[in-house]
Simulated scan of single mutants.
Amino acid sequence: MANVGGFFKNVMSEMRKVSWPRKKELTRYTVIVLATVAIMAVFFALVDLGISEFFRWYLDL
């Protein structure tokens, strides 16, 4: 049980050393991530639509 207490003490010590982003940086990073996810979602939706249409056309031959 002493090891568990020492573990959490070490965790807290290490967390104090972490360089946390400022609010402005965090906002910028969040916007970048959301924009990237949206762009990738649109890209894969278009690719899926294209592949689906190709197979519909191919199977109707």
Rank of each mutant, 00 (worst) to 15 (best):
M1F: 10
M1C: 08
A2M: 14
A2L: 11
N3K: 14
V4K: 08
V4Y: 09
G5E: 03
G5N: 02
G6C: 00
G6H: 04
F7A: 10
F7V: 13
F7C: 06
F8Q: 12
F8W: 15
K9E: 08
K9A: 11
K9Y: 05
K9W: 00
V11L: 15
M12D: 13
M12S: 13
M12R: 14
S13M: 10
E14A: 15
E14H: 09
M15K: 14
R16N: 15
R16P: 03
K17Q: 13
V18E: 09
S19A: 14
S19Y: 03
S19I: 10
S19L: 03
S19D: 14
W20R: 04
W20T: 08
W20E: 07
P21E: 05
P21S: 06
P21T: 06
R22D: 05
R22C: 01
R22P: 02
R22L: 01
K23G: 01
K23C: 00
K23T: 06
K23N: 04
K23E: 11
K24V: 04
E25C: 02
E25I: 04
L26V: 06
L26I: 06
L26E: 13
T27C: 02
T27Q: 14
R28T: 01
R28L: 00
R28N: 00
Y29S: 11
Y29W: 14
T30I: 07
T30K: 12
V31S: 15
V31G: 06
V31C: 06
I32A: 13
V33S: 11
V33D: 13
L34F: 10
L34G: 02
L34D: 04
A35I: 09
T36Q: 04
T36F: 04
T36H: 02
T36S: 12
I39L: 14
I39F: 11
M40P: 00
M40C: 10
A41P: 01
A41C: 01
A41K: 02
V42R: 04
F43K: 01
F43D: 01
F43E: 01
A45H: 00
A45L: 04
L46F: 10
L46C: 11
L46Q: 07
V47L: 15
V47M: 14
V47S: 09
V47R: 12
V47N: 05
D48N: 09
D48E: 10
L49Q: 07
L49N: 10
L49A: 12
G50R: 06
S52A: 10
S52K: 09
E53R: 08
E53F: 07
E53H: 05
E53Q: 07
F54V: 11
F54I: 12
F54Y: 11
F55E: 07
F55M: 11
F55S: 11
R56V: 12
W57E: 14
Y58T: 04
Y58I: 01
Y58E: 06
L59W: 03
L59T: 04
D60K: 08
L61V: 07
L61F: 13
